[in-house]
Amino acid sequence: MPTAHSIQRIESLTAFSESVLAYPIVLSIHLACIALFGGMILATDLRLLGLTFNSLTITEVVTSLRPWKRVGGTIMIAMGLLLAASKAETYAPNPFFWTKMIILGLIGVHALIFRPIVYSETEELDRSPVIPAKAKVAAILSLVLWTAMFVMGRLIAYWD
């Protein structure tokens, strides 16, 4: 894997992965973001399913958590890329890593499909007497995709 080798050999990345402190610190930040950001995804999805936060409108839950999800997601992905790039040679042949990347892509597709009809149309959802099916489908798929993403992340460490 020449590409993986040259990514990993980037001087700053080598220094990073060999540092006793930097690598676990970045991994801790990655995981802390999963906890904080994951709670917000869970809250949004459960609200779309009508399972909790029912005294708050869908609009309130989605819009007030949105900026924090963006901040959390950006830090999480940046840290994740740094972790993967610094160990590019180990990650390149790892099927769990690539499955995780495919799921990340699917999460992007999920956003493309459901943002215009669910997440940007929350006022329409709030006006509806029952939560429309499209919102529940979006929520269930989101829960499934993020859970799969999380499990693949953990399994990366188990491939050799």
Binding site: L31, I34, A35, L36, F37, G38, G39, M40, L42, A43, T147, F150, V151, R154, L155, Y158
Partner: peptide
Amino acid sequence: ALAECVHIGGFAVGVGTIAL
């Protein structure tokens, strides 16, 4: 691996809800 997933997943949901 399963125990680790439950451990980290449980932690993430627990702390994620506290963070809300």
